[in-house]
Design a protein around this nucleic acid. Structure first.
Lengths: 132, 132
DNA sequence: CAATTGATGTAATAACATAACATTTGCAAT
DNA sequence: ATTGCAAATGTTATGTTATTACATCAATTG
């Protein structure tokens, strides 16, 4: 499954996220795109919806923000569950994957006959630089 | 660390959550407590803040809702990372703990010298009954 | 060209959360 | 008992995040 050609709005939103230092809220993205004609939140949310679907952007549930996938070119959906470490001081996000974690979680849900659709793993804390 | 005596508002909020079938939003809790004199969101959020601190209530980040801890009497904070399976159809929540998952995640953050404060693991999908 | 589909534009509103400030309550120290 | 403090509460207003509803536009296809 490859990423389709992005539309104009999708490209604009994606570019903003890619150039950002860290995660951005939808409204922050909106503000950054006012000059490009964006006027309403929905323009951002609709683009984000597609970008999430394509796996090129992640949503950070615990901080209501969005971040470009750390694996440009690859399809993140194929890496198993994505985990994030989010620095509460500087906002920097580290993305990682751990197959053993995936395996344990999936073993648990299988035991419950639970059918997983979307899994969130987010660790909030302080990055090395900020903890010092 | 034992749970202190709850205040009036804290007790009211906690009782609502305990009697609920599943997670509730802060505003749903507010509505259920109008008869008991609640008028403003802050009354709910302030109580929730304490209940979260005491570990008797959990916040589900991915659905902006709150749920009573599944281990009444025990202190949930001592169980390590709490994970949730949330049924998107019926809203039911299952709470579980997996020490191996904790171990893997903590090993990863240690490697990054990241200092974790709060970790979220939420699996959304369909429970056995709803998947049928 | 008509019909369908997906993308976009716009306004309004819903849902979630906090800031700021005033007041009250519980309780320890004197 | 009274003072002083910390925690809890009450209230209004506002800030932030997300969606509904409806109109329009563009590309594709039968």
């Amino acid at each position: 499954m490859t990423t389709p050609q992005l539309t104009k709005n999708q490209s604009l939103v994606f570019d903003v996220l890619e150039k950002a230092e860290g995660p951005l809220s939808a409204y922050t993205i909106l503000d950054k795109l006012r000059d490009h004609g964006f006027r309403a939140p929905l323009q951002v949310y609709r683009a984000l919806e597609k970008l999430l679907e394509y796996g090129v952007v992640h949503r950070l549930e615990s901080i209501n923000s969005f971040v470009a996938c750390a694996h440009p070119g690859e399809n993140c959906h194929s890496h198993g569950i994505v985990a994030f470490a989010i620095c509460e001081s500087c906002g920097q996000v580290m993305e990682f994957h751990d197959h053993e974690v995936d395996h344990r979680l999936m073993a648990w849900v299988r035991g419950q006959k639970f059918k997983p659709e979307k899994t969130t793993i987010e660790i909030r804390g302080l990055c090395e630089a900020c903890a010092a």
